[in-house]
Design a protein around this nucleic acid. Structure first.
Lengths: 152, 152
DNA sequence: ATGTTTATACTGTATATACATTATTATACT
DNA sequence: AGTATAATAATGTATATACAGTATAAACAT
């Protein structure tokens, strides 16, 4: 494209039809919403998700969790360190091939017991706002998009 | 919920049906994909989006751009500073109520001229992978979800 | 005219994210 | 056994994100 023909009109509507822009915008909005919901518990949305992941797959390793969540393992490494420092997660085992086994501590399980109802009602409110069927369909569409973007 | 009844099963499937988890996972996957596409140009996906936003709305202020993109203005402030330091964006005007007017520099426009075809083919590949109709529908569903999460 | 409110941008701090690289250890191979 | 390979976790660095708070200047009220 020639720089000389470059005009604002050629950029109109690009954001609105860009899957990347829309995926990030949606993640920002939804994450802000969940962050506010979990704030009284001292948790972020991502921390909640990570605790769920660790609690659901007891004794999983970083690499396994990273694959499940579609997060880079190095990202998870630091996020787990944070939860570990707060006493919510325990990591046992070293650096070798067997890997470090992650588990919720008693305190972590207690916090999750408080957090689950909050999560449920947060989702219920979203469901009320946009309709259960549309919400389910949005989740499905996002999963599909994530798969497609991961393949190439 | 009683801590004593807490078991891994109660956490099964939570991630899969959580709009927040899925929105973030999708944004990560799609952003990784676009980051790879734009890497040869020295741009990230977010930088591309921001340049598009600035180019499409000439002379817009931070606050206006932030509202358009659904990003916190303080986030945009630093992201713009980055582009400014690279000579892709020019900001004129001060801190007052009128605000700082943002524009692409000549170098920024040149870069966008190179980036647009890359963006087009990246989207086309996604479209090939999951089907044009499904992709459009996913974008629509994400926009809807973002609106719902922003309201409460 | 002066003081108050308000809109705008910026800074401090913390989390989240990923790529490139390094350190460590278990497994495989000879 | 000893070495090479591969898997795992951690670190260095950079960007992205948002909230709380600060600085600045314009608009408004009295």
């Amino acid at each position: 494209m020639d720089v000389n023909e470059f005009n604002p009109e050629s950029l109109q509507g690009i954001a609105a039809e860009c899957p990347g822009f829309q995926a990030r915008a949606t993640a920002r909005a939804v994450t802000r919403y969940y962050n506010a919901c979990f704030k009284p518990l001292g948790l972020t949305a991502e921390q909640f998700s990570l605790l769920v992941g660790i609690g659901a797959a007891e004794g999983a390793t970083l690499v396994e969790l990273a694959a499940d969540a579609g997060v880079d393992a190095t990202t998870l490494s630091r996020n787990v360190q944070n939860l570990e420092a707060r006493g919510l997660v325990r990591a046992e085992g070293g650096r070798g091939r067997a890997g470090k086994r992650l588990n919720l501590t008693r305190s972590g399980r207690r916090l999750m017991a408080d957090a689950l109802p909050v999560w449920k009602s947060a989702k219920a409110e979203l469901s009320r706002s946009m309709g259960e069927e549309r919400l389910r369909s949005a989740i499905q569409a996002m999963a599909e998009l994530a798969r497609s973007a991961a393949l190439p």
